[in-house]
């Protein structure tokens, strides 16, 4: 039964093993209604496994998960009526048109043919796919497929959306377009659990971020808190002549007042800064005055790897367990 006061998603001590590897090793988190939770982690962290369990595609070995107040193990059918899932590889049907895809989903949600058709047309409009609606989905670009996939998750107006790496594999432009669409959804008050490998994506879309690594939650909080922990943006300079690295590091310390790090192999120096572009222009001036030849200079947002470096003291492991979807 749905209890209106409960969180949209509650996960308690979830465990899932594939062979002797634990894809999930006691994961707990919750997502309040009307909020967006970003499950952030590298490949193989257990993100997809968590989504598969919450969307009834897999069963947990231990632990409890409720979605819309319903235990996923006890009443999977009840959960399916209330969720929308956009799986990692945009599973739209290539041999159906965009419109046919949406109508089929509506009919399988038992909305009735008439309503399904009306809802399909409404969503094609909303997702800017009206012109493409009559074309086979296999002719769509990657970005269009993702938009159609997203529209398909919304057909039955679900209470909760699951988006598994919604922008993985998209070029930057398509990613930005999709982010705009997702931000509209977020603005409309949808409850969303999204998984991502990109801190930037979680930062832009999520209210709360849960960082997972090797099947465990290693941090959670809002994007700002997480970034503060990591240290915010970093200024970097890459020089042509490695002999000048020391001089450049001194210069960067003078400008930012922080301790820079030297990467001799990459011929670059980085330093944390909150000064933004102004710091870069000061640095550029200083470098020009000193006659240092610069290959690249700029500001870099902390990456997932930086988050991991801070939280675990290690880079993202290459031997992270591989996620096994069924």
């Amino acid at each position: 039964m749905t209890t209106p006061t409960s969180a949209a998603i509650e996960v308690h001590d979830l465990v899932k093993r594939y062979g002797d590897k634990a894809a999930l090793d006691g994961v707990s988190f919750d997502v309040p209604r009307g909020t967006v939770c970003g499950l952030l982690g590298p490949n193989g962290a257990g993100k997809t496994t968590a989504v598969r369990i919450l969307t009834t595609l897999a069963e947990a070995d231990a632990g409890v998960a409720t979605v819309a107040g319903i235990d996923v193990a006890a009443d999977p059918a009840g959960v399916r009526r209330r969720i929308g899932l956009a799986a990692q590889d945009a599973t739209v049907d290539g041999l159906l048109t965009g419109r046919e895809n949406l109508i089929m989903i509506g009919e399988l949600h038992h909305l009735g043919r008439r309503t399904s058709q009306a809802r399909a047309d409404e969503l094609l409009t909303q997702f800017d796919l009206v012109d493409a609606g009559g074309r086979l989905a296999k002719t769509y670009s990657g970005g269009m497929r993702r938009r159609l996939d997203l529209a398909a998750t919304l057909v039955a107006r679900p209470e909760i959306l699951f988006l598994d790496e919604p922008t993985t594999g998209l070029d930057p432009r398509a990613r930005n377009e999709l982010w705009d669409v997702l931000e509209t959804l977020v603005g409309d008050g949808a409850t969303i659990l999204l998984t991502t490998q990109y801190l930037e994506e979680a930062d832009r879309l999520a209210d709360d971020i849960v960082v997972v690594d090797r099947g465990r939650v290693i941090a959670r909080g809002d994007a700002r808190g997480l970034k503060r922990q990591v240290g915010g943006a970093q200024a970097f300079v890459t020089v042509i002549d490695p002999a000048r690295l020391g001089a450049v590091a001194d210069m960067m310390q003078r400008v930012t007042g922080a301790e820079p790090g030297i990467d001799p192999e990459g011929r670059s120096v980085t330093v944390p800064t909150e000064g933004g572009p102004r710091v870069i222009s000061q640095l550029a001036d200083a470098l020009a005055d000193a006659g240092v030849e610069v290959e690249d200079i700029g500001l870099r947002q902390p990456s997932l790897d930086d988050v991991f470096l801070t939280l675990t003291g290690e880079h993202i492991a290459d031997d992270a367990p591989v996620e096994v979807p069924s």
């Binding site: 009834t56 399916r80 599973t91 069924s326």
Partner: peptide, 10 residues
């Protein structure tokens, strides 16, 4: 992935 899609539907 079509089967997964179907499985996530009621």
């Amino acid at each position: 992935g079509a089967i997964d899609r179907f499985r996530s539907l009621p």
